[in-house]
Design a protein around this nucleic acid. Structure first.
Lengths: 358, 358
DNA sequence: CCAGCGCATGGTAGCGATACCATAACACTA
DNA sequence: TAGTGTTATGGTATCGCTACCATGCGCTGG
């Protein structure tokens, strides 16, 4: 330990007291930002010690740390994580690739994912891939360019090119919102096919024999529909209709679809919608058309959106713990980044929340 | 130009053909990733030329560029933007700080913001500040640590500490979702107080004299409420109730609030809700209570959420072009980053979309 | 035939931080 | 008292890329 300004740690062009002058360092580039050497000079320590105060404070003596923190405060030093990241090969950043955030389906897990990581000092970089096929690959390439410490992907269906990129990058990856036997790396999700089957069982147990299903045009919605349909067949039920709508399914899609199906509805039909948006549209249109819910038409959605919970009638839905999924995904990534292990495959059980629409 | 492998550009320990061996470069750190020098070696050019192919292709001759691109492809090179960012002092990254993304209010502009920037080669880093006071400052510090090229903030009310940080950082900033005479830097938004007043005018023009208002507990919702209330007073109207609910207002909040207010409703009342969630709750509960909408209760919300548009009855709402706001914010940031200028203050006009609930 | 120019490309020197190892100071043990 | 270990700190050498300037080459025109 020294009094202020002892050994000159390759100190930059500074005024007294560590107040940097604005200096052209690289021709054409004026640099006025305070950097770690400035803080070090002002506190009378080596840059390395400043770095320790910020990253491993337990390895610095309290009086030294105090002086350094005071200098940081006084100079308004904001560490440069780009430089730190290059040196340490850790970006403290995680990328999340989702089809969209304009749906609670993804915004809810995303919110808890971000919150959990934020608490651990990580930031999240967002990539929106849309529902188009092939929207994902360029995004994966783009985010790998920033050397994230981890990656969150939606779904399990990725191109071979994408898989190779991920493998080469050697980054921990979590996939959410789907389940497969062979995840790319880690997985926190559930089986959409099975989910559809569960709904069919639920309807069958309530004595239904006539069924319909509405699904948005996206692979996971299709899996839910297919699971529903095949289980309905197993039960020997009658399938009136299996509509596929644009992705992501909108309320209006649900309304229009019901209007089409309405003439075929008999005494008592059960309809499964691939999202609560569609289900809400169906319930709304049923009211308009004077179709009694649940007496003549039983409706079950998926996603447990607020409008299903708080509308009238409240709508039966299949709920998965989106927030929990986001949190788990974050925790598993953090575990792996920290050098530990994390389960390869975590299944989040979907459960039916029975409400007045069935 | 040379045949392959000419002047040794400080080429790393490589096998033939630029296939890198896994080599320990910094004790304890094995590096297997392909880097720019590997590509340069494989293509028989200098690293600088590879960099040009990626960043300023118009300054490289076509045959050379072709060879370089072929080498990039063959080696599976993924550029390291952390290193590039440190060197160029451009991170090609923009941070967005929002209270939450679990509301269309923010997820819609965020989506178009991200899309627009993505097209320009920028990525977006997401920060969620919550609705708590003081949630923003640590986040701003944290994101500045990554030297974003631009920043998006929600609202115009930032702490002096935050303003100082931003000024010191010298980063272009756009504020959205609010308007003030003196933005921190740039602004794309609208005046919430005035918006409330517009709704009051709209109701008054329809002959209403009795009013109520529901607002979520957040500063912008409060401004909308206050604008509404003061204009109602100017019109000499009667204000039955001005409730403040938790943020962000939920459907159930709206339902419960209407239940409380219901006894005070007279012949004909007009209610303004600070968000469509609340408005939807009000309309739903009115149906349950047998209060005729719009005859006895006229309802106007804010935000033009899907359920207002597609529910039954469709709900009158104040719409602001959220997608446009996000796009403009992105474009203005890009303009400033590119060294150009952008308007200091862009107002996005809110407009009333009249539907069956009024 | 060569100065003068413009284009394509190369060489050098950082960008601002951290990993690793070295070292100094001090305590404790034998 | 020397030997050994522990703790706090410093010095050096990168991390992988790009800004800047230098250079070489072909072409033009007098």
């Amino acid at each position: 330990m020294y009094p202020n300004g002892p050994t000159n740690h390759n100190a930059p062009e500074t005024g007294r007291d560590g107040v940097r002058l604005i200096v052209t360092r690289r021709a054409g580039h004026a640099t006025s930002a305070v950097k770690i050497t400035d803080v070090a000079f002002a506190a009378g320590v080596a840059p390395m010690t400043v770095s320790r105060v910020l990253n491993t404070p337990e390895r610095v003596s309290e009086p030294t740390a105090l002086r350094v923190r005071e200098a940081i405060e006084r100079l308004g030093y904001v560490p440069n994580l780009i430089a730190g990241g290059l040196s340490s090969r850790r970006s403290r950043m995680i990328s999340a690739i989702l089809p969209t955030i304009a749906s609670p389906m993804f915004s809810v897990p995303m919110q808890s994912f971000t919150d959990t990581l934020s608490r651990a000092g990580y930031n999240v970089m967002l990539g929106l891939s849309g529902y188009e096929e092939g929207g994902e690959d360029p995004l994966i390439r783009a985010v790998l360019t920033r050397r994230p410490d981890g990656l969150l992907l939606t779904g399990t269906n990725h191109s071979p090119a994408a898989r190779r990129l991920l493998a080469d990058a050697g980054v921990p990856v979590v996939e959410i919102w789907d389940a497969t036997e062979t995840p790319t790396d880690m997985l926190v999700g559930f089986d959409h096919h099975e989910l559809g089957a569960i709904v069919a069982d639920f309807f069958a147990a309530a004595g239904h024999t006539r069924f319909a299903v509405l699904a948005a045009k996206d692979p996971r919605a299709a899996a839910r529909r297919d699971g529903f349909v095949s289980r309905v067949r197993q039960h020997g039920g009658t399938l009136l209709a299996a509509h596929t709508l644009t992705a992501p399914g909108s309320i209006m899609d649900g309304r229009l679809a019901l209007r089409e199906i309405a003439p075929q509805l008999g005494e008592r039909t059960a309809i499964f919608c691939s999202s609560d948006n569609l289900a809400f549209g169906v319930v709304t249109e049923a009211r308009v058309l004077g179709i009694a819910v649940p007496e003549r038409l039983a409706v079950c959605g998926f996603g447990d959106f607020e409008m299903s919970r708080s509308g009238e009638p409240p709508i039966t839905t299949v709920s998965v713990d989106g927030a929990g999924m986001g949190r788990l995904a974050a925790e598993n990534l953090l575990a792996r980044i920290g050098g530990g292990t994390a389960p390869r495959r975590v299944l989040v059980p979907p459960r039916i929340i029975e409400r007045a629409s069935t």
